[in-house]
Amino acid sequence: MSFSSVDSVVALPSSARRRWTVRPWLVRAHRWMGLTLAGVLVIAGLTGAILAFDDELDAWLNPALFRATSGAILPIDRLIVSVESHDPRAEVARIGFPTPSRGSVLMTVAARDPAVSLGYDQVFVDPASGQILGQRDSTGCCLAAPVLVPFLFRLHYTLGIGPAGERVMGIVALLWCVDCLVALCLTFPRSRPFLGQWRPAFGIKPTRNSFRLTFDIHRAGGLWCWVCLLAVAVSGVALTLRTEVFQPAVQAMLPVTPDRDAPPTPPSEAIGFTTALRQAADVAPGRRPADAHYLQGAGLYLVAMAAPERGVWTGLGPDIVWIAARDGSVLRIDSDARRLSGDAVLALQYPLHSGRIAGLPSRLLVSALGIAVAVLSLTGPWLWWRKRRAASAVRR
């Protein structure tokens, strides 16, 4: 049965007529969501394609910051002293341990006096000698080699406009999730057999008609990538609207371990990174520290402990040990063996979105998906513009 004529639609039972009269509304929804989101998704797609290999790009652009001498890593307290004695105005708030791409230790610093501007927030330290290799302001703009990768990350995550931009990206990700579902429905055939009629939507017909070719690329590209695109969109919601939307939604369906904050601790009373790392090593034997973060306002040290044989964010990522800054007590351990089902869903989102989940193959896939997002976001408005121009010509 064909639905291409008015008579055939009128001849349908009332339930079928109601079902197919929804289609114009879906077309309008897809059109206006696509036009509204296109610019942002082009930016997000292209930057995401690059950021799938951010460490490697950063190391290539800034070899002086990333290369270090070989040898055993010095005690972490000596490295902290090296940084803080170099500039007494600064205190270390986060430590990133060496990675395959970065031989140096990356220390994020903050001013002891909030009224003071350091002019930088990251210090790179040789782990074997304690020498300061360099520093940079990761909030800097825009295309200079030292700040290019941090700038691309901010552009991808917040459009470069801070917390307000993060909310914008979260809303864009939510609308993108809806648009993915709407777009899929629009590819469904209007007659049976369903699979037989749907199959042509996955192909690109050879033609010299640029409109038809672009339409096939837009539709087939979206269908072939649909599952991955929806996963990236959902994980985008998780990373930008975690506490507002994603975590409450997960908690409504699956068990999630509640967060635990400790009383705020003045820096003078905190146990320090050395003790926190020792505590983490005791409860996560056989793992190496990958990252340690002091959250003064929450009274916590968060220490990421990774398996030596795999990438930090492979699978569900590293074990995260929550340590009270005041007394060093272990408040919580997020690990594969201890995570509840909801915890696993939450932990999955960053490795999935960044492409780290399965090493190089998944990073290549995410990079390709970023390009696909940009192509789909550009071809959609182009098709709308061509149809609008054609309609205007007919009216004349």
Rank of each mutant, 00 (worst) to 15 (best):
H353W: 04
I333V: 15
D343V: 11
V366H: 01
D336H: 09
L352F: 13
A358G: 12
V345G: 01
A337G: 03
L369D: 05
L346T: 07
L360K: 08
Q349R: 05
L340Q: 15
A368T: 13
R338D: 12
V366T: 12
I357C: 08
H353I: 11
D334I: 01
Q349I: 08
Q349G: 04
Y350R: 15
D334C: 04
S354C: 09
L340E: 06
L352H: 01
L352C: 06
G359S: 11
A347V: 05
P361F: 04
S341M: 10
A337S: 13
A344V: 08
P351Y: 12
G342D: 10
G370V: 09
R339L: 14
H353T: 04
G359W: 07
G359F: 10
R356H: 13
Q349P: 06
A347C: 10
L364D: 03
G355D: 03
I357K: 06
R338T: 13
S341N: 10
H353Y: 08
R356S: 15
G370N: 07
D343C: 10
S367R: 03
D334H: 11
L346M: 15
G359I: 02
Y350T: 08
D336R: 13
R363F: 02
R339M: 15
G342I: 07
G370W: 04
S362H: 04
I333W: 05
P351N: 09
G359Q: 05
H353V: 07
D343P: 09
P351A: 05
Q349L: 13
S354Q: 10
G359D: 10
L364A: 13
Y350K: 12
P361T: 10
L348A: 15
S335H: 09
R338M: 04
G355M: 01
L340R: 15
I357T: 06
A337I: 03
I333T: 13
A337V: 06
S367G: 15
R332L: 14
Y350G: 07
L346V: 14
V345Y: 00
Q349F: 02
L364P: 06
G359C: 06
A344H: 02
G359A: 09
L360D: 10
S335F: 12
I333M: 03
V366L: 13
L364H: 02
A347P: 11
Y350N: 10
L360F: 11
R339T: 01
L365Q: 00
L365Y: 00
D334M: 11
A337M: 04
Y350S: 12
L340S: 13
P351S: 07
G355S: 03
A347D: 02
V366A: 12
H353R: 11
A347S: 15
L346F: 09
R356E: 11
G355C: 01
S354K: 03
I357L: 06
S354G: 11
Y350P: 07
G342V: 04
A344G: 05
R356Y: 13
R332A: 10
G355I: 01
L340P: 03
G355A: 09
L369I: 14
L360V: 13
H353S: 09
D343S: 12
D336G: 03
L365E: 00
D336P: 03
G370A: 13
L364N: 06
L364G: 08
V366I: 15
H353N: 11
G355R: 02
A358S: 12
S354V: 05
G370I: 08
S335P: 09
S335R: 07
